[in-house]
Structures are given as C-alpha cells and as structure tokens.
C-alpha cells in the first residue's frame, strides 16, 4: 500500500471540498477501497472518511410508505431491515449475497453502488425499486434515477466532489425477487444477477421492472421484456417471451468466469425465475 493523507471531515460540505481535489478517494466501509489500495490498483493521495459525518446511515420509512436508505447504511442493515425485506425483497436478497456477514457488517450500500461494478449485488434490487439517488456536493443536492447513475464499469455521472448520500425507494412493488448466478453458495461474485419486481391487479401485471447485473458495461433494465409483461397475466408463454427479451437486451462479455453465451442463457433462465418469484410474492 502506498502512503496517503487521511481526512475525517464532520460535514458533507467539508468532505465534498476535499473530494473535489484530484487523486482522492472516499472511504465508506472500505471493503473495496482497502483491497484496491493493497493491490495498488488504487493509489489515492488522500483518503476521505465519511464515517464521522452524522446522518448518512439508517433505513427510514416515510409516512407515504417510501423508504429512504442512507448511503452509509451497512449492507447487513439493509439485508435485515424488516421494511426493506417486506417492500423491496429483491434489494434485501441482493444485500444478503454480498461477501460474508463480516464483510456486510463493514460494507455500505453507498459504497457498493458508488464503486459502480456492473456485478454489484444491490444494484439490480435498486433498479427494480426505481430508486432515486440523492447526491450532495458543496453546491447543494441533486437527485438522479439509479438507471441514469452508471456510465460504464467503475464510471458514474458523479462529478468531482459529489457524494452519494441516500437512496429513496418510492412506491413499493407488491413483489420482487433477486437471484444471483454463481458457483459457490456464499462469498462469490455474481456471474450475473437478475431482479424482477411486479405490481399485480387481480392477476394482471400492472407494472413490471427487470434489473440485470453483470451482463452489460453498466447494470441495465430489460425494458423490452417489461413492456411485454405490462397489462398481461403471467402465462408460461409470456414468461418465455420475457426471458428471451431480457436475454436479447443483455450484451455480456466472455471472461474467466464464464462465456457470454452462458451469461445470456442465464439471463433468460433467471428472468423467468425471478418473475415467477416476484408474482408469487405479490
């Protein structure tokens, strides 16, 4: 690990000013950053901890039923939150897939998203929750939709000094489900991840959202498949069409974990399964 300066600001404004400088990194849980620094793939001159800034952690349910998840909320807390489990099951299931319990007690949901790995386990759940990402900087706050946050692997729309502070999860879907394709039961990286969320009215799908991780340079929504589902009942034929449409929406790569072809096939399989799961929970 290379030497670095360490800052522990107590306000967002201070943190944002520091983070606006070049060669800086934010420290949230540190579960990605510290590994990167040890491997020398990250060599920041300054590390800015967010841990002393009050008000960035915690899951809050608002009067209208929407849920706010602070960026510094530990992944383990997201996983175990009764409200997240009930209204955004796919997000809780995704959180439960990250690393080990020890890692989840350190890692934050903000870090998991800001790291912008296309394979992040909480991202598909946030996509199907239609999450809004609140961002703070010295100039104030702004908000972007989660599906507009990512621009490439490790890349986001965040500008220097901007810090993710919370995720707002509006209008809960009535059922959602996340499945990760992996080899090892726990502590594996996603070969792919699929989340589906549906709203049902008397058996008819009034809204459907499908989020795909690790099948494109950024996490994506399978909008074609979603459109097929809206206004229809989930028949086996429709399920098959949705799976195929989601697979067609993906543009995976081949790497040491598996081939692009396998990833695309698994998008098909897991889209069908997560949809069935989401409908069963709705």
């Amino acid at each position: 690990m290379k030497g670095f300066e360490f800052f522990e600001p107590t306000t967002l404004a201070e943190a944002s000013q520091l983070f606006a400088q070049e060669h800086t990194q934010l420290l949230a849980g540190g579960t990605d950053l510290v590994i990167g620094m040890k491997a020398l793939t990250e060599a920041p001159q300054s590390v800015i901890s967010l841990q002393k800034i009050p008000g960035l952690a915690g899951v809050t349910t608002e009067a209208d039923g929407s849920i706010s998840v602070g960026a510094m909320t530990k992944v383990r807390e997201v996983e175990l939150s009764a409200d997240v489990q009930k209204h955004h099951t796919a997000l809780a299931e995704g959180a439960a897939e990250i690393g080990s319990i020890q890692i989840r007690n350190l890692a934050t949901i903000g870090g998991n998203i800001a790291h912008a790995s296309p394979a992040a386990d909480t991202v598909a759940g946030l996509l199907v929750a239609d999450a809004q990402v609140d961002i703070a900087s010295a100039d104030g706050e702004r908000s972007v939709s989660i599906d507009e946050l990512f621009t490439g692997p490790g890349q986001t729309v965040l500008t220097p000094g901007e810090i993710i502070i919370r995720f707002r999860l509006p209008s809960p879907a009535s059922g959602s489900h996340y499945i990760k394709h992996k080899i090892r039961e726990v502590m594996d990286l996603a070969f792919i991840g699929v989340a589906a969320a549906v709203n049902l009215d008397n058996g008819t799908i009034t809204d459907a959202r499908i989020g795909l991780a690790a099948v494109a340079p950024t996490p994506i929504r399978a909008t074609e498949a979603e459109n097929l589902l809206r206004g229809n009942e989930l028949t086996s034929e429709l399920l098959q069409q949705a799976g195929e449409a989601a697979a067609a929406a993906s543009s995976p790569i081949s790497d040491l974990r598996c081939s692009a072809e396998h990833r695309r096939e698994m998008v098909d399989v897991l889209t069908r399964r997560t949809l069935q799961g989401a409908v069963a929970r709705a």
């Binding site: 090892r184 039961e185 726990v186 502590m187 990286l189 040491l256 974990r257």
Partner: peptide
C-alpha cells in the same frame, strides 16, 4: 487455476474458489 496467454489469470480467492461450509 486458469491460464491465459500470459500466465495465471485467477491469482486470488475471488476467482479461485475454495468451498465454504455453506457448499
């Protein structure tokens, strides 16, 4: 252990999987 054109490509426990008790 996986090998590419320039040697071992999974030199760590992320992509060299040893089982856990959950497996």
């Amino acid at each position: 252990m996986q090998y590419g054109e320039n040697g071992n490509i999974n030199p760590g426990f992320v992509d060299y999987r040893v089982p856990t008790s959950a497996d």
